[in-house]
Design a protein around this nucleic acid. Structure first.
Length: 514
RNA sequence: GGCGCCGUAGCCAAGUGGCUAAGGCAGCGGAUUGCAAAUCCGCCAUUCGUGGGUUCGACUCCCACCGGCGCCUCCA
């Protein structure tokens, strides 16, 4: 039974969909005014895994991520750069798209743009005025927070505390907590015609309009960063629920934020670490200097997308994440365990791990292990994995199980000596294949290990492999004659130029050091 | 000031009112290997920020304190 933490109730609730078998999911996407950075990638990766797991669990999922392509920041940036807002938005949208794609995020169904949703936004606003929840003031339209019955229910704040005079906008707003649905255009700003004159939407209204348009008045999951709980999501709820008279979303899921400190002492949130001045804090400090502003596409040049994805999923989504190059390298080292197993699998089973036709749904993956000891332990790990994921998408716990699973498979290959060609019988290989298929099945719900990673290879002019074959043959002859001095000289010499030799029962393999 | 989150080994990080407190990185033994690499086995928190309280029993619930962090200001 899947359980999901709901910010509304501050508890984990059993997951029950609004409509049987269907899930509507909305994630607040980027404002496309600057290249995206690592922090923008947290939500997409996490909710990508959420969608995959829901699909795996048998739901028909529609996932919407909006693109905010008109707002103050965009207008300012476009002015500063002397680039039309539309063009800026298009460039930055392309940047965002290529970044999430590099992280394997490719199951988003709709990317609605604010500028392409104007009729719905205007209609939404007009309806709110008609129903008495909003008012016009000098070409602006504001939502009247005092009319929203349970304003504050998501962020758990009391509305009364937020009401008061209009603050700096006292001439237009009735209450300081009131927020803009529509903003009158200042001269030179991009604008759209509306019943209130030329203007553009306020920040929150687009999400209400788009989610309603694509997912309906009530849908299942609304997600976003923890920083959006207030005021953004609170205001979305107010708008949508006042207009429709029914809940906007059943489950509100919020992911933790990437730590964004520039001070060594603050990174990681551990006073002791900074005080000691140890390696980790120094590393974090160095990285954080560029972290806040470094475009994600630059980071992608340093680390593979799949590694960053693995890193983001290795901790629970509601926790804050500390980023450092050292952490990424640790994760990279850990992932080698999987990549090496995949190669081993190919050697032993004669087929690529990536070509395994693994079950796509939980029901199809269910199996009874019988007496086979390997499959018994595989089935056990599979259950452990599913338990973890059923518990509010505990991807960190799930990844731990993946390590247990790959260890069980390696042990089986060791115990049965399957690296030796003569020891491979059909029954053993069948068990191994089944175990590997389960690994692929489970990793697939996290969107991991879907495609072979780009391996570092020697320039392939056709000559290198033949030269390597020759060297390996020479070394084999030396070893046969117990001339280990020569054998080691070849291996050590190659190691110095970045080529690793590994001796196995089936022969010697070479690879380029990563 | 208001609202809220977090503090688990050298580092990262799951988890739980009583079952051996996952997993990863680093480290140390051993098996394997001509030696390696890889893999496997074992070790690595009598203890879960500190001090109280509730309970037959708490790391897990409550309170206080210390430390870190977020939001309250159109940041994912």
């Amino acid at each position: 039974m899947l359980r999901v933490y709901n910010t509304l109730s501050k508890t984990k609730e059993p997951f029950e969909t609004v409509r049987p078998g269907k899930v509507g999911m909305y994630l607040c996407g980027p404002t496309v005014y600057k290249p995206s950075h690592i922090g923008h990638m947290v939500g997409p990766v996490i909710f990508d895994a959420v969608k995959r797991y829901l699909v795996y669990s048998g739901y028909d999922v529609t996932w919407v991520v909006n693109v905010t392509d008109v707002d103050d920041k965009l207008i300012n940036e476009s002015g500063a750069r002397g680039v039309p807002m539309k063009q800026l938005a298009e460039e930055m949208t392309a940047d965002y798209m290529s970044n999430i794609r590099a992280l394997g995020v490719d199951v988003i169904d709709h990317f609605p743009r604010c500028t392409a949703t104007m009729p719905e936004i205007i209609e939404f606003t007009r309806d709110l005025i008609a129903k008495g929840f909003a008012y016009e003031a000098k070409g602006d339209v504001y939502f009247d927070v005092s009319k929203a019955p349970d304003y504050g229910k998501l962020s758990h704040r009391r509305a009364e505390a937020m009401l008061g005079d209009g603050g700096g906008m006292v001439d237009r707003k009735r209450n300081s907590a009131d927020f803009a649905l529509w903003k009158a255009a200042k001269s030179g700003e991009p604008s759209w015609d509306s019943p209130w004159g030329k203007g553009r939407p306020g920040w929150h209204i687009e999400c209400s309009a788009m989610s309603c348009k694509l997912l309906g008045e009530t849908f299942d999951i609304h997600g976003g960063g923890l920083d959006l709980v207030f005021p953004h999501h609170e205001n979305e709820i107010a708008q949508s629920e006042c207009r429709h008279g029914r809940p906007m979303a059943k489950y509100w899921m919020h992911n933790g934020l990437m730590q964004a400190s520039d001070e060594v002492g603050k990174v990681g949130g551990r006073a002791t670490r900074a005080a000691e001045g140890d390696l980790a804090s120094q590393e974090a400090g160095k990285i954080s200097k560029s972290k806040g502003s470094e475009p994600f596409r630059e980071m992608l040049k340093k680390f593979p997308g799949e590694t960053i994805r693995f890193f983001l999923l290795s901790t629970h989504y509601r926790r804050p994440i500390d980023f450092s190059a050292g952490r990424i390298r640790e994760v990279e080292t850990g992932m080698e365990t999987f990549y090496r197993f995949f190669k081993r699998y190919e050697r032993v089973a004669g087929e690529s791990f990536y070509d395994i036709d693994a079950p796509k749904t939980r029901n199809n993956g269910d199996f009874t292990p019988g007496k086979d000891p390997l499959l018994k332990s595989v089935a056990e790990w599979r259950n452990r994995y599913l338990e973890a994921m059923d518990d509010d998408f505990n991807t960190g716990g799930g990844i731990a199980v993946l390590y247990d699973l790959v260890r069980a498979l390696n042990k089986f290959v060791d115990d049965e000596k399957l690296e030796e060609p003569g020891r491979r019988d059909a029954a053993k290989l069948k068990s191994l294949r089944h175990g590997a298929a389960v690994l692929k099945e489970l990793a697939g719900t996290l969107g991991l290990f879907r495609e072979p990673v780009a391996e570092k290879t020697a320039a392939d002019d056709g000559l290198t492999p033949r030269l390597m074959d020759l060297l390996i043959a020479l070394r084999a002859e030396a070893r046969k004659k117990k001339d280990f001095a020569t054998a080691d000289r070849i291996r050590n010499g190659l190691s110095e130029i970045g080529v690793v030799l590994e001796d196995r029962p089936g022969g010697t393999e070479w690879s380029v050091k990563s």
